[in-house]
Design a binder for these strands. Sequence first.
RNA 1: GGGGGGAUGCCCGAGUGGUCAAAGGGAGCGGUCUGUAAAAUCGCCGGCUCAGCCUACGGAGGUUCGAACCCUCCUCCCCCCA
Length: 395
Amino acid sequence: MNENDVPAGAIQEAERLAARSINCEPPGALARKLAEGRPLRVKLGVDPTAPDIHLGHTVVLQKMREFQDAGHTAVLIIGDWTARVGDPSGCSSTRPMLSGEEIDANAETFRRQAFHVLDEARTEVRNNGEWFAGMGLAEVVSLASRATVNQLLRRNDFATRMAEDRPLSVLELLYPLMQGYDSVMVEADVELGGTDQLFNLMLGREVQARYGVPTQVCLTMPLLVGTDGVQKMSKSLGNYIAVSDPPQEQFGKAMSISDETMPEYFRLLFPAEPGPDGHPAEAKRRLGRLIADRFHGPGAGEAAERHFNIVTRDRGAPEEIPLVVLAPGDPVHLPAVLVDHLGVASRSEARRLIQQGAVSLDGEAVREADVARARLDGAVLKAGKRRFARLRVTP
RNA sequence: GGGGGGAUGCCCGAGUGGUCAAAGGGAGCGGUCUGUAAAAUCGCCGGCUCAGCCUACGGAGGUUCGAACCCUCCUCCCCCCA
């Protein structure tokens, strides 16, 4: 179809679907696909390397949901097989491979959590082990013939590693090819990803072309910056808000985002909502409510905010405190209780908290490790800012 | 195939026979401040019912009154020459 034959409606629709994206390559391709008037097959590949999905993942998932809502088919590929290779994207060195059990468990978690955003009924989930597990050497060689090393080395981090003479395994070189093969197998019309995926997505087009099938549109989304406001959100950096985090935690983490990064959260996560305005702290409260509501249902945000007000703003005890029944013994050794029931890392750590006055009983700082049993019944034990337990002494 | 360098606490990184549970920085935690923002500031930051003890400087042995530091072997990483 000629550029000029694309109906204006398709061009508009393409623009709408590409909203907020960083790349939509090649130019005009999405509109041409849309002009064909059939549901497009929109692919997203995920590596089940981290068990939990976080807000960063949801940016791309939401884009996929937009396609679903426009009547297109979402194809979610779980890279159960490719996870064994280790995606070198953005990494300066080779990632460790995962065991089969880990991968399976992660994949299952990912599936479950992805459907917080995607419409399960309209999502096709595929494991790429489906076609890779039984692949013979002949087929591997055939796949390898579809791209040149020159093409692969155009990728920045590969080129850098070559230049600096750091190791770059053949396995890693193979990875983009495998990802491209996924596209061939599911007949992808569009592949989504973060901006760091652009190279792999584009190479997918190359692979598709060499297999003689239609090539995909590559649509990439911005990477959400983490709660530290510096690096991209990632599990391993610990700067993430997980989909599975309890609402109070999501709200709290939202409040701790820096003022500068907050607008980006609104823009990428809640494009339909009005952006931040007024006092930044108020805007963040709204952000926190929106996040908690999205993943825990309407009302979760307000409850989380109440909890926040009581515990963090007013430094009080929350509405609901887990009850802890103390084991026999008098006096009671507090470090043990703190470790067993309040999530303190070690007894030494607990001692330090006590020394620093961070442990209190009914609001009164405790200064010694051993406390008379009689003093504890019914008391609220607090460690640090927000760890609580109501104590009960066995009769 | 030959020659050289390196492996230290969550991460980076000093330390080259006792004063080392190991400088410094980052991360983290706890205070002050405050909007759980930023910035600033003080303290903590291996374990243990803790003035003491135990475990730790890639692994295994050895020398020594005493080793992260010296020796031997092993594993892994990096560099240079071919």
